[in-house]
């Protein structure tokens, strides 16, 4: 996967493809869900990606920025993104309505090596908008439920209203083929029936982990990593089986503009997925 050009446009990787917003609705006060489809039907169907890869989205006149793909390649045709309003490009994206056009380039990045995890146990730890890239892994596991072992999801948000995709995650609690634990740092509604506390307070609920066959996925705000990684190490999960996806400034997505450089690697082509060992080994990653 790494070092392979799977980008849609093989002659000019900088040229976007036109895509249509087919569905959009707010997830929280500042995060919106976007379901988009490439206008060209054939390209829409043949757009191949892995969980953990990202795409560059552009809005005419506002610019371009990288976004992790929240949908799963096991459901081809539509691409989904959870986007937080944070800068010029996202402000412009937020103004768009259904049937409006955006530009898309990609997919870029190494993605999670999910194909090599068949038969393994999966723990997904997400905080806040960290759910955006990890939802792709989660849905991929659920769509291929029989090829994975145990699947556990730990999801934390600051407050109930800030938990993105909460209806989707609540629905998962009904299933008996996966463990779904939800938490909020603080409940300001008085109606929250799940755990209250930071995401690490969910770890005691994970019983009888088989560390050597477990892969852990982590994504969340920078402060979360230190504490979650400590818990995972306590569970004896090998450092190279702890995977995380990182955010950096990117202008090209194809390893040229330099903005995402860390040490001597480029997040956009050598990442954004790294193992905990990479993080220890390379400095500056988190």
């Amino acid at each position: 996967m790494n070092g392979e050009n799977k980008c849609m446009n093989q002659t000019n990787p900088y040229l976007p493809e036109a895509a249509r917003i087919v569905r959009t609705y707010p997830l929280t006060e500042d995060v919106k869900f976007f379901q988009v489809r490439l206008v060209d039907m054939e390209k829409a169907i043949s757009f191949k990606y892995s969980p953990g890869q990202f795409a560059m989205i552009s809005v005419l006149g506002a610019g371009e920025a990288p976004f992790s793909i929240s949908s799963t390649p096991s459901r081809p045709g539509l691409l989904e993104f959870c986007i937080r309003k944070a800068g010029t490009v996202t402000n412009a994206i937020f103004k768009l309505k259904e049937n409006d056009h955006i530009g898309i380039r990609g997919p870029y990045g190494n993605g999670f090596p999910i194909e090599s995890m068949h038969g393994k146990d999966i723990i997904i730890v997400m905080g806040g908008l960290g759910a955006a890239p990890l939802r792709s892994v989660l849905l991929y596991c659920l769509d291929n439920r029989d090829i994975f072992g145990r699947v556990a999801l730990l999801h934390g948000a600051k407050r109930p209203a800030e938990m993105i995709l909460r209806e989707e995650f609540f629905a998962l609690k009904e299933r008996n083929d996966l463990e779904c634990y939800l938490t909020v740092d603080a409940d300001d509604t008085g109606k929250w029936k799940e755990n209250i506390g930071v995401v690490t307070t969910l770890f005691p609920l994970l019983k009888d982990i088989n560390p050597s066959k477990t892969f852990a996925f982590v994504c969340g705000p920078p402060v979360m990593y230190k504490f979650v990684l400590k818990e995972l190490i306590k569970l004896n999960i090998p450092k190279n089986q702890i995977l995380m996806t990182l955010e950096r400034r990117m202008k090209c997505g194809v390893g040229k503009c330099g903005h995402c450089a860390i040490d001597y690697i480029y997040t956009c082509i050598d990442g954004p997925v790294f193992t905990y060992w990479d993080v220890i080994h390379m400095r500056e990653l988190i």
Binding site: L60, G61, E64, K256, C257
Partner: peptide, 30 residues
């Protein structure tokens, strides 16, 4: 290293997408 610029033309529906040199020593870089 370079930065990418989206320069809207006066005619609002068109943009020039350009590149300009950037440097990792500049504060805005990362």
């Amino acid at each position: 290293c370079y930065n990418v610029l989206d320069k809207p033309l006066l005619n609002k529906d068109t943009s020039e997408i350009g590149r300009c040199w950037d440097a990792c020593t500049l504060e805005s870089y990362s």
